[in-house]
Design a protein around this nucleic acid. Sequence first.
DNA 1: TTGAAAGCGCTAACAA
DNA 2: TTGTTAGCGCTTTCAA
Lengths: 360, 360
Amino acid sequence: MTTIKEVARRAGVAPASVTRALSGHPNVSEELRQRVLAAVDEMGYKPDLLAAGLRRGSSLTVGIIVSDIINPYLAEVVNVLEMEFAKAGYSVLLANSHGDPRRDVENLQLLHQRRVDALAVMCVDERSPDLQVALARLGVPVVLLDREVAGYDAASCVVSDHYRSTYRMTEHLLDRGHEEILFITGPAGTTHAGRERMRGFTTAVENRGIEVRSDLIRASRAVAETGRQVIAELLDRDALPTAVVVGPNPFLPGVIQELHSRRIRVGQDVALASLDDTPLTELHQPPVTALFRSTEEMAQVAASLLLGQLSGTLRNPRTVVLPMELRLRPSTAPTAENILRSRAGRGRPSRRQQPAADAS
Amino acid sequence: MTTIKEVARRAGVAPASVTRALSGHPNVSEELRQRVLAAVDEMGYKPDLLAAGLRRGSSLTVGIIVSDIINPYLAEVVNVLEMEFAKAGYSVLLANSHGDPRRDVENLQLLHQRRVDALAVMCVDERSPDLQVALARLGVPVVLLDREVAGYDAASCVVSDHYRSTYRMTEHLLDRGHEEILFITGPAGTTHAGRERMRGFTTAVENRGIEVRSDLIRASRAVAETGRQVIAELLDRDALPTAVVVGPNPFLPGVIQELHSRRIRVGQDVALASLDDTPLTELHQPPVTALFRSTEEMAQVAASLLLGQLSGTLRNPRTVVLPMELRLRPSTAPTAENILRSRAGRGRPSRRQQPAADAS
DNA sequence: TTGAAAGCGCTAACAA
DNA sequence: TTGTTAGCGCTTTCAA
């Protein structure tokens, strides 16, 4: 690697002048600038960012902590964040916790040691005391995405309006006569998003004077297999409710697949809704009711909050709440009554053995 | 931030002794070690990795260059790579080229400046001369995933066997009587994977004595919209062949959606096959024939090649070819003849106005 | 076994 | 406007 000293010697100037010429310092003679740039070009010199970062006390680096990048929703957020930060000259250090809360803390410390200038956090468990301590010690701007850490207001937050939107979706199902609704969600209470979704669901049910049945609420890690298992288990017991609400993104394929393989027709033998809008919800036949939100917007807002704090434009952390949109589709068209009638007409769903009738 | 000096003072030793105690240096008295560890604990000291990297000449960092992380396949590879590198103590710097070959080069230089110890490359365009020059200058181990740079053998390569597998899939379609096959693929020839797929397709066709029709080969950037456009355009001209092969991952939803909305039934009015296996191929009704490969295996092999070179276990770069699996599903069951008969029975596909007949 | 000193490559303060 | 000097925090000689 060429160093600044070698460039300086070649150009016949001091190292500091090389820095000045390259960084657009105001007081540099045109002639010196030209000589330096020529030498830089000839030698293919690129400053060592490690050394520059050490000296300057800032690494031009932003850390991203992700609970599990398997989740396409998070992958898309990371994608947009990286783009926004790259535009502003920051590189991205990506740390994935793979669903393990201890990794959240390890990753946070590691990124701290790498002297990231800012941090975007989509951790597994926002309630972890270790994480909260580590966050408080961090000393750089932080933005939490769909997370909120109680008693720690030094961070900006960008959250979707999960409470309101889940409430509305639940109401929609209640309006169609569903009194038993299966609610499949992520790990219990570890994130703001998870808690708000749960609260939206239970509040809507209770407000109708219906008792919340804890056996119909399933919380577990967001991996595909879970969706399938939950449905299989309920069908084995002949206990599938008339409506199913699926939370995290990765559950949906498993749920649909298990329903298919048991010949339960979505939108006829069961109403199905998703709290995340994915390509699958729209492409499925029939299309699946879902809550839509712009991942792009969320990531852009988060990035601009961080960049604002980094540039000094934004003094204090802020919380931004983004709306979600209820997209009604045929999967939730039928009423509970119609579903029960349909099931009766076909015999008990879990016992049926006749071949699929999907072909048109 | 606590520095090593402060820890040293607190423990009553020299800074160098702190380093030795923490790095497991052989010649350190147990008593000194204990004193240092106590001080480290009390003060919550964590070494500054920027400074350590500068001094040591290695950053404990691995760079990943991705053509477009929108592609779920690449996202999964990144996910596994990150996991493997994290296990070995390396952090990941992620750089996304967003489909722009110039960004490949910029990203490469940037990661170089950040003194990554190794690099995993899934670039947009492997043929770019600038990229090749920059790669050659890099001086750290490199692994190319599904890429190959002509005349540059300093890098390891991990490639899937796209030629053979695409050849076999094409043969499968030819066996079923398809003589006109639409081939939708990524940017022409910019990557090894793309070229091999193309070669597999055209060779299979030519080997049957059938002329390759260039108007049925569509190459463009792997974004969802393209799939829809290609299908729409052909249907508008009433020129949809009996079989369609879809290459990159992101095309498939658009293709399926456009077929749906035009009431072309997959597996009845057209045979459909995908060169990537995604959740959609299996969940679609009917399921879609696809080439399967293990992203996990590819990423793990790539990571172990790099880590082997980093640790000195592996002396020379290596090329590894991974097999792919042809998964036959109902979408390619019908013969060309049956498809033509089906179309004739329903009138010209692009003109039909009657409602969907999907419901079972 | 431990400490002192030098220096990785860069930039900012100060001096000229 | 430019050069000199010092030092970011760490690790690695070298000497004791």
